[in-house]
Design a protein around this nucleic acid. Structure first.
Lengths: 221, 221
DNA sequence: TCACATTTTTAGACTAATCTAAATTATAAT
DNA sequence: ATTATAATTTAGATTAGTCTAAAAATGTGA
């Protein structure tokens, strides 16, 4: 069994490699985990001996099958616990990350199997991120950034790109959540912001930055 | 915040002092935690500096108010999670201890408050042990050992003294659980065992050891 | 391609938690 | 009260994970 620290390293490497052509370098890992690059180097040496990833001095790391399996299982556990916290315990989507970060390290396959069943085998977490199944497979979904919706088009919010608390709380305030219907009323060209209507009720101006971070599924209305 | 290890020491000391006139000695703690007495001595020194308990060389320790508060909170968390595992995830009562042992270290007061509400503010865990409230107060219950029931008397199972897996599985097998009705049909004097009827259906012989470890509430039928 | 900046690694040290073996203190029995 | 035994502590070492400061390797721009 991997220690909690080891799990956190592997998860960090997984997240970094996802957005970086399959490799993670020392500094990126250090930044992600809020530790010193020196500590990371030490750890990379030790963990690569345990075959979670390949490590070459000065070249960074890339995960092995074993490492990917561990990482996706952690993602699975994290996201299932987030569903539990929001659906069952009525937390808001901006409050669950830190708690799920702890819960994901609880070690029991049976627990996760049963939790999954209890929650109704959800495919997406409270931020719209896909929950890998027990084999590590993600269910992908056709989605686009709200930025890509033209004037007059409508979509249903299915996810967010940014997970930071302030952004999520802002969305709470303007009543945007998963499942919310958003229609583009006007494109404001000079700063690429959009005037949108939310659930056919409120009209709001969303900045380019906000639009980029909201994923929607286009609808025909 | 206390580390997981620190929490485990304090919980062990709490459990030992509960059955030992308020003090715990080095060997008992070592045995309880499966470590060496030398490690325990080290830890007692360090933890007593953090004011969780008083420690005098060669004399053992007793908890401070701070220590008792931490310990009862851990007990509370452990037992609430056990309720969750049995009531919601449908684990059996003999399967939940190790998982709850991990879950109890997750740090979030809000989580426990919400979990308590979600579970309907249970007063007892799946083994019939009382769940302390947020202030550390236990709800006590009038109960007696099955050993004290006379021929013809009846009781409802409200708890177990022994929590070991084999004992709990044995009770599963003979259909004894919390809420089960047990009537004493005959006392067998020579070995202090009892012939009992279980939920008015099965008749079984329970050894003295089994009877001592089953708590019941007497009923008038 | 050479010098400078950036990234990474090494060296050496620290803390928490553990161990074994040896020394010390307490306890119980004659 | 003395001695044997049991309990406890000390000494010294180990492992995981971390740090800072310094050295080495890599990458980049003129």
């Amino acid at each position: 069994m991997a220690t909690e620290t080891e799990e956190n390293y592997i998860k960090a490497i997984f997240k970094i490699t996802e957005k970086n052509q399959g490799t993670a370098n020392t500094n990126a890992v250090a930044q992600h985990l809020n530790t010193s690059p020196a500590s990371v180097t030490d750890m990379l040496k030790r963990l690569s001996e345990k075959e979670y990833f390949h490590y070459e001095k000065y070249k960074g790391v890339y995960l092995t099958t074993k490492g990917i399996k561990l990482a996706t299982n952690l993602v699975r556990k994290h996201r299932l616990w987030e569903v539990f916290l929001v659906d069952k315990l009525k937390f808001q989507w901006d409050e669950v990350h830190d708690i799920a970060e702890q819960l994901e390290h609880v070690d029991s396959d049976e627990l996760i199997t049963r939790l999954d069943t209890f929650l109704g085998n959800p495919k997406y977490d409270p931020h719209g991120d896909p929950i890998p199944n027990a084999d590590g497979k993600f269910t992908l979904r056709s989605q686009t950034s709200l930025m890509n919706l033209q004037k007059g088009e409508t979509g249903i919010v299915v996810g967010v790109r940014n997970h930071d608390t302030p952004f999520l709380q802002y969305l709470n305030k303007i009543c945007v959540n998963l499942g919310t219907k958003i229609s583009v009323v006007n494109n404001i060209d000079f700063d690429h912001s959009k005037e949108v209507s939310i659930d056919d009720e409120n009209r709001v101006i969303l900045s380019q930055k906000a639009c980029v971070n909201i994923y929607v599924k286009k609808t025909n209305d």
